[in-house]
Design a protein around this nucleic acid. Structure first.
Lengths: 109, 109
DNA sequence: GGGATATCTCAGCCGCGATTGAGACACTCC
DNA sequence: GGAGTGTCTCAATCGCGGCTGAGATATCCC
């Protein structure tokens, strides 16, 4: 019962909010249909831009835009195809994805 | 080696994107500084609106707005204080938070 | 080299969502 | 009942971010 609600709420000063800026940034990356679909696709292995554009039903330049943001965040890596270097293949950085999940887990525990 | 990149990318048809609508919705809830701060505060136990408004530096009606969205998503519960029913205390629904984390884990694996 | 294909970049438009402001509602104390 | 306090609701504004369109870059094939 000592664990119950306080009698006077304002008697509890100095409640600090932890820094959530990086957590919010990673959540914002996932809060988009196209980007989330891209990450889901890349869970099965690497794909090129045109494949993901066809799978998501989005334009290739749009998918490339979202991939640039994911790459800037370090969640995906890009590499050109060996046989035909016109195709750029993307793959997930599993360590970075695990770190992103760790941030979210620290909040939702 | 057989696990490498395909020789012809377009030879891989029928790549489907799983449904990410609910995942995106929960990520959008966390992709806001105020809402993330609220959830972080509630990790330490229940708080009333004015406490969280003071801690986050936001207006009380704004905090109430965000709490309404979190409540609509089922992540938090509201209950009035026993001694002074003017204060509305919010607490996290741990089961719902765990479910939300599960959605994100399913993507970031 | 020239054409074709895959990808990238960037300015501009446009819609969604966060914040604000005013007001209404719920509750307590006198 | 009336004043004061905590919370909620909602219309209006405004800024951020996604989509589009056009052009640039990189690579392959003839």
């Amino acid at each position: 019962m000592g664990r119950g609600l306080p009698v006077v709420p304002t008697a509890r000063p100095g409640i600090a909010v932890p820094d959530v800026t990086d957590l919010v940034a990673t959540a914002a990356l996932l809060a988009d249909r196209t980007r989330a679909g891209i990450l889901a696709l890349l869970a099965n292995g690497p794909h090129c831009v045109c494949e993901m554009a066809a799978a998501t039903g989005e334009r290739e330049n749009n998918v490339s835009n979202h991939l640039a943001r994911l790459r800037a965040a370090g969640l995906v890596r890009a590499s050109r195809h060996g046989a035909d270097a016109r195709w750029v293949y993307y793959e997930r950085d599993e360590a970075a994805c695990a770190a992103a999940l760790g941030q979210l887990r620290r909040l939702l525990a």
